[in-house]
Amino acid sequence: MATNAPVIDIREVTRTYGEGPPALTDVSLTVHTGEAVAVLGPSGSGKSTLLNLIAGLDRPSTGSVTVDGLRVDGLNESGSARYRRTRIGMVFQFFNLLDDLTVLDNVLLPAQLAGVSRAEARRRAAGLLEHLGIDRHAGTHPGRLSGGERQRVAVARALMNRPALLLADEPTGALDSASGEDVRKLLTGLNTEGQTLVLVTHDLRLAESCATRTVELVDGRIVRDTHRATAVAR
């Protein structure tokens, strides 16, 4: 499934804030097309900082971040927003859906912001809702759905612009066990279909069932990079 084309290429990144210790120190990471990488570590280990750097929501103090061939750390504010609309999809712990919009309108929003024609956006949205098993909820508002269903809507929204990379920040963290298992199966299926994933999670079951690779952070450094077949300790 993986190819030689890197989707993420992070080189010698350090991120400091004020006078405190670095949130990340000399982190290098390459993620190839088709991989599903789970980023693990205790609170304060640098997981969220790493995700924000990949998403273009933060910039490294030193080093470089390249995603889908684009130097993300060199983008201005409008370039970063365009990058997030067109190159990546993001899924959050608490869904971040707009409750005053229907499921369909939530899913359509990224394509509308990216300038996709209305007809094409509706075609994509209909296909995603059907593929993810939530087409019957197209006219429903998110507040009437279960947690697992809302996360499926969030995933559909994240996939609308056909991103090279799907980022997920604790995607099962706000779900009960049954809904969490539903989302684990969904993300595993997407990766099987070829979608590149990076998951920040405390959910070891998600990492074990979905990830083809786990990266462990401690005190802002990668201490272990484990593939399913091999483990590399640093």
Score class of each variant (00 low, 15 high):
2 A>D: 13
5 A>C: 02
8 I>V: 10
15 R>Q: 10
15 R>K: 14
18 G>L: 04
19 E>T: 15
20 G>W: 05
23 A>F: 09
23 A>M: 06
24 L>M: 04
28 S>N: 09
29 L>F: 06
32 H>P: 00
33 T>Q: 15
33 T>C: 11
33 T>F: 06
33 T>L: 10
33 T>S: 15
34 G>Y: 15
36 A>M: 01
43 S>G: 05
45 S>E: 04
45 S>F: 08
46 G>E: 00
47 K>P: 01
48 S>I: 01
51 L>T: 00
52 N>P: 06
54 I>V: 07
55 A>G: 06
55 A>C: 00
55 A>D: 00
56 G>K: 03
56 G>L: 07
58 D>R: 00
60 P>M: 15
61 S>W: 12
63 G>S: 06
64 S>M: 11
65 V>I: 14
66 T>C: 05
66 T>V: 15
67 V>K: 02
68 D>H: 02
69 G>C: 14
70 L>R: 14
78 S>A: 07
81 A>K: 03
82 R>L: 10
85 R>W: 00
86 T>C: 06
91 V>R: 04
92 F>Y: 06
93 Q>D: 04
95 F>Y: 15
97 L>H: 11
97 L>A: 09
98 L>E: 05
100 D>W: 01
101 L>E: 06
102 T>F: 12
104 L>S: 13
107 V>D: 04
107 V>F: 07
108 L>S: 09
109 L>P: 15
111 A>E: 05
112 Q>I: 07
113 L>E: 07
114 A>I: 02
117 S>T: 11
121 A>S: 11
121 A>D: 09
122 R>K: 09
123 R>V: 01
124 R>C: 01
132 L>Y: 03
134 I>P: 07
136 R>F: 07
137 H>E: 08
138 A>D: 13
138 A>E: 14
140 T>V: 13
140 T>L: 03
142 P>L: 14
143 G>M: 14
144 R>P: 11
144 R>V: 08
146 S>H: 08
148 G>K: 12
149 E>V: 13
149 E>N: 10
151 Q>G: 09
152 R>S: 07
153 V>A: 05
154 A>C: 05
156 A>C: 08
156 A>F: 04
156 A>E: 04
157 R>T: 02
158 A>S: 02
159 L>W: 05
161 N>A: 07
161 N>I: 07
162 R>F: 08
165 L>A: 01
167 L>Y: 09
167 L>H: 04
168 A>Q: 12
170 E>A: 10
170 E>H: 13
172 T>I: 12
173 G>F: 14
173 G>L: 15
176 D>H: 08
176 D>G: 14
176 D>S: 10
177 S>E: 13
178 A>T: 12
180 G>W: 15
186 L>I: 07
186 L>C: 01
187 L>G: 07
187 L>E: 04
187 L>A: 02
192 T>K: 11
193 E>T: 00
193 E>C: 02
196 T>N: 03
198 V>P: 09
201 T>L: 13
203 D>T: 01
204 L>N: 03
204 L>T: 03
208 E>M: 08
211 A>R: 02
211 A>L: 02
213 R>Y: 13
217 L>D: 09
218 V>A: 02
219 D>Y: 09
220 G>V: 00
221 R>D: 03
223 V>M: 01
224 R>L: 07
226 T>S: 14
227 H>C: 01
228 R>G: 12
229 A>R: 06
229 A>Q: 05
231 A>M: 02
231 A>N: 04
234 R>L: 12
